[in-house]
Design a protein around this nucleic acid. Structure first.
Lengths: 348, 348
DNA sequence: AGCCGTACAGCAAGCGCTTTCTATCACGTC
DNA sequence: GACGTGATAGAAAGCGCTTGCTGTACGGCT
C-alpha cells in the first residue's frame, strides 16, 4: 500500500504527531529530530494524503477560479495571473496551493454547480472572473452561494465582475462603461456619426456596460442612435463576422463598427474586407480588451486595454490574504484607450 | 457549524450509512426512504464534505490538467476540451469531477511539483499537455512520478506529448515532424530555396520535432541548410518579431520564414511589414497549429492545423475510462496543411 | 538543593464520511 | 408452520491526518 504518516514515524522512531509537525512546521521540533524525520520522508518517498489532511485540519489548499471560456485568452491571462499569485509551485514556501480552474462556458447552471463543487472541497478561496449573468433568480442564487462560501471561511474575490450585493465578496471591477464611452468618443472625435455596435450576449453585465458607455458617448454628442445600428452576438470572431455583414445590410452607410471585444472586432475586419471595404478608409473598427493578438491585426486594432494580468494578480493576492482588499471591498479598474490603425477619419 | 451527514440522518430519521448510500446511489434504498433523505438534504442545504469522502472512499473526483501556458489558446483549447469531457457539471450524472488546471509555465520543477500536489490529492486522473522538456534527469523524474501516480490508481494521459517510456501513460501524440515536413515541402514546392526557421525553445520535444520535419523536407529536396537560417526563441509573438529581424540581418535574401507556431508567425509578419517587406510577395510566412486567430492575419496564415479540441476531448474520455486507449497505448494525431495567403511563389 | 519555566515529544480524540458485516422484516415455500 | 430468501437498514470500524493536552527532562533561578 501507500506510505502513511505512521510508516514515516516508525522509520524515524518518533510519533506520528511529530512527523506531522515537522511537515507543517507549525510547532517546535528539535533540529536533530526534524532531520531524522525528513530523511525518513525522503527514503520512503512519502507524499502526504491531501484529503486526510484537509479533513483533520478542516482546511484545504485548493483555490477555485471560475472562467467563462478557458480557450479565450481574456480569461486565460487572468487565470494565469491569479494562479501565479496563489503560490502554487514557485510561490513562497509553505503555501503550496492548487488552482482549480473551472470552465463555466457562460452557463449559469454550471457556474452554480462549480461553486457547489468548490464548496464541497472546502476551497480556501474562490475567484470568479468575467461578467455576470444578469438574471435576478440566478444572481440571487449565486449571491446565496457566495455568502455560504464566505461563511465557511472561503475567501471570495470577483475579478472583472461587478460587485455582488449582500455578499462579503471583494470586487475588482473593470470600468467597461467608461472604456466604452472613451472609445466611442474617440471615434466621434474623428468625425464619425453613424456607428454600428456589435454587442456581446444579452443579459451580461459586461455586454450592457460596454454598450451603455457607447450610448452615453453618442448621447453626449447629440447623436441619435438608430436601433438598426446595434446587433447582439457572442464574444467570438464568428459572431463579429456575421454581425458585421448584418450591420452592413441594414445600413451600408456606416462609417465605423465598434465591437464588444477584440475577437469580435477581428471578425468584423474580416467581414469588411470580404465586402470589399478598406479599414479604416471606408470603415473604422474598434475592439475592447487589447488582447495580445490585437496589435497584429492589419491595421492594428484600436481598442481599450484592460490590465488583465495586473487585475488577476491582485485578485490572487487578495484571495490569499496577502494584500489588503480595497476600501469598501470594491475597486474599479480603468481601461486605457489604445488608438491604432484601425480607426481613422470617416470617408467623404 | 456546517451541516454534516449525521445532521441529515437525524432529520431524515435514518442512519448516516443510509444517507451516504442515497447520496452515492450505489446500494439499494427504499424509494420512500430515499425521498425522505433527499428532502432532508434539501432542507438543510447539505453539501458533502469532499475531503472526508475522499479519505473514506480512498478516491477523489479531482482530475489534473498540466499546461505550459494557460494564457495561450493552444493550451486553453485543449484544456477546455478535456474539461468538457471529464464530466464536470454538464457531464453525465454521478461523476461530478473537478478539473485542476495547473500552469507550469514550461518549468520542469513546477511540472514535478504539480505532479506531486496531484498525487497528494489522490487525483483520479492526470492529463499532461504540450511538449515535454528534453532533459534526461528531468524526464526520468517525470517518468518516475507518472509511474507512481499510475500505481496509486491515477490514470495518466499525455495529450500532444510524446510517449513516456517505461510508463503506463497513454499517449496521444501530435505528428509535429510530419506537419513540419509537409509545410516546408509546400514552400519548396512553390519554389522557395532559402527558408529561415524560427524554432521554439531548445530542449523541447515539440521544438525538435517540428524543426526536424523542416530539415527532412529540405534534405529530401537537396537543399543544403545554412546554419544562419535557424534561430531559436520562445513560443510567443515577441520572439517571432525579434527572430525575424535577426534572420533578415543574417541573410536578407530569404524568401520564406517558417515559424514554430502561429503566434511566432504573427510576430514574424509584423517584423517583415515593419521592415518594408510584403507578404507573400517578398517573403512567405508559415505558422503551426492553426489557432483561431491565424485566419484573421492579413494575409491569412498558411499553417498546419492540429485538431486540438478533438485531441483534448479524446484525452479526457480516455482519462475517464470512457474510451478505449489506442492500441499499444500510443496514437499519433496528424496535422493538416492549411494553405492560405501568407505563402506564395518567391520573388524574382 | 528545590522549584519552575521552557522546550520537546507522545497520547489519544476526533475530523466526516464509506463500507463491511450483521440485524430485521416480510414473504414464499415445502 | 418452520425456514430459507431477498431487500433494506443500522452498527461500527476505520480512512490518515491534526492538535489539545499531558508528560518529561533539562537548565536556570532563588
Amino acid at each position: 500500500m501507500t506510505v502513511t504518516l505512521a510508516d514515516v514515524a516508525a522509520r524515524a522512531q518518533v510519533s506520528p504527531a511529530t512527523v506531522s509537525r515537522v511537515l507543517n512546521g507549525n510547532y517546535p521540533v528539535a533540529a536533530s529530530t526534524r532531520e531524522r524525520v525528513l530523511r525518513a520522508v525522503d527514503e520512503l518517498d512519502y507524499v502526504l494524503n491531501g484529503p486526510a489532511s484537509a479533513l483533520a485540519a478542516a482546511t484545504s489548499d485548493l483555490v477555485g477560479i471560475l472562467v467563462n471560456d478557458i480557450a479565450d485568452p481574456f480569461f486565460g491571462i487572468m487565470a494565469g495571473a491569479i494562479q501565479s499569485e496563489i503560490g502554487g509551485p514557485g510561490g513562497r514556501a509553505g503555501g503550496e496551493r492548487l488552482a482549480v480552474v473551472c470552465n463555466t462556458g457562460g452557463s449559469p447552471e454550471r457556474e452554480l454547480t462549480y461553486l457547489t463543487l468548490l464548496q464541497r472541497q472546502r476551497a480556501a478561496a474562490v475567484v470568479l472572473t468575467g461578467g455576470a449573468v444578469e438574471n435576478a433568480p440566478h444572481a440571487a442564487a449565486v449571491a446565496a452561494k457566495l455568502r455560504k462560501l464566505g461563511d465557511a471561511g472561503t475567501r471570495v474575490v470577483l475579478c472583472g465582475r461587478p460587485p455582488a450585493p449582500d455578499t462579503e465578496a471583494i470586487a475588482l471591477t473593470f470600468d467597461n462603461r467608461g472604456g466604452g464611452r472613451e472609445l466611442t468618443e474617440h471615434l466621434i472625435g474623428l468625425g464619425h456619426r453613424r456607428l454600428g455596435y456589435i454587442a456581446g450576449p444579452e443579459e451580461r453585465t459586461t455586454t450592457r456596460h460596454r454598450l451603455e458607455g457607447h450610448r452615453d458617448a453618442l448621447a453626449a454628442h447629440g447623436i441619435e442612435e438608430d436601433p438598426r445600428w446595434t446587433v447582439y452576438g457572442r464574444y467570438d470572431r464568428r459572431s463579429g463576422y456575421e454581425a458585421t455583414l448584418e450591420l452592413l445590410r441594414r445600413d451600408p452607410s456606416l462609417t465605423a463598427v465598434v465591437a464588444a471585444n477584440d475577437s469580435v472586432a477581428l471578425g468584423a475586419c474580416a467581414a469588411l474586407r470580404d465586402s470589399g471595404l478598406r479599414i479604416p478608409d471606408d470603415v473604422s473598427v474598434a475592439g475592447f480588451d487589447d488582447l495580445p493578438f490585437s496589435i497584429d491585426a492589419v491595421p492594428a486594432l484600436t481598442t481599450v486595454r484592460l490590465p488583465l494580468a495586473e487585475a488577476g494578480a491582485r485578485a490572487g493576492r487578495i484571495a490569499m490574504g496577502r494584500e489588503e482588499p480595497p476600501p469598501g471591498g470594491i475597486a474599479t479598474i480603468r481601461g486605457e484607450l489604445m488608438v491604432r490603425g484601425s480607426s481613422g477619419v470617416p470617408r467623404g
